[in-house]
Design a protein around this nucleic acid. Structure first.
Lengths: 159, 159
DNA sequence: ATCCCTGCAAAGGGTTTGCAGACGC
DNA sequence: GCGTCTGCAAACCCTTTGCAGGGAT
């Protein structure tokens, strides 16, 4: 994504947040927009603490409470997605302009790759039909090792 | 599953645990076998606390520490699978004699259904080839509502 | 007899909550 | 000015850990 597009994205997501806040009669606080910008400047699967520390480093003071509060709001307006990659530590990522995708997680070095596969949609509609569920979302994670090094490290642990 | 088969399963999983403990030079304590039996008598996706309380109710005293310790061991010998269904609270289920399956979770009433789909295997091998990962396991969860009642309750929340 | 395992309770890590003061409306 | 949002810290929940006594080998 080049700089122009990123600036453009930033404008659009800020607009979405603003609309959401107005609609829900919530306040347009500077903290919320600062956090949104920080999130849309990142390009990874971060946790709440990392975001909190990043703000601190930039000399933008926000409390942990505000970080969590804002992450909740951003999830509600679909600007952020929360993941639980098999541990209790929640991970987040921006979601505007991204096509829905799934994750491939290296259990050794924690590298996370993304992939898309249209077959999941098919599985979803089949499952909806069979069980009478209305499905809103899904998460598909593959866990494994990303390289021979990581595979070797894993084998060593299992002994 | 009829009673005969369940008794049979119980015998077999106890044997598996015993072999594992001997192999790893761990001790065959009564707590471990009692917990294994409790787990294989259940038929749901339970959390550690529920199991702990169940043992208490049956007047079989085990500590939380032992519950967690035993769940770890049972995971290692593949008799139990641990799930993280989008919350920090871990869920467990017995896994011997079960084919690998995935989950459908009602976000309103927390009902959990299971399903299998062979296409996931295909996606898995494709992803392995493309990204050079060696995949050990996966988790696919669909989140939605299980009935019109639950769907309605969800809509009411969103207002 | 060894020393791993247990029970207990305290500590731990991530997240949520309560409260008083700040500030968007 | 009203009422929500913030920062702070304490509380919270689930899980892990430390330790001393007990039981498997």
């Amino acid at each position: 994504m080049n700089t122009t597009t990123q600036t453009d994205t930033l404008k659009r997501v800020k607009q979405i947040l603003e609309n959401y806040l107005v609609d829900k009669k919530l306040r347009k606080t500077p903290e919320r927009f600062a956090l949104l910008e920080a999130i849309y400047t990142r390009d990874d699967h971060f946790d709440a603490e990392t975001l909190y520390v990043e703000m601190k480093m930039k000399n933008y003071k926000v409390s942990r409470a505000t970080v969590y509060n804002t992450l909740d709001i951003l999830q509600e307006c679909k600007l952020v997605i929360k993941h639980q990659f098999g541990s209790k530590l929640a991970r987040y990522e921006k979601s505007f302009g991204y096509q829905q995708h799934d994750h491939l997680i290296c259990v050794e070095c924690n590298k996370i790759l993304e992939f898309c596969d249209p077959r999941i949609r098919n599985i979803q509609s089949m499952v909806e039909d069979i069980y009478g569920f209305k499905i809103d979302s899904h998460s598909l994670n593959f866990y494994g090792t990303c390289s021979e090094d990581c595979a070797e490290r894993q084998r060593r642990k299992e002994r």
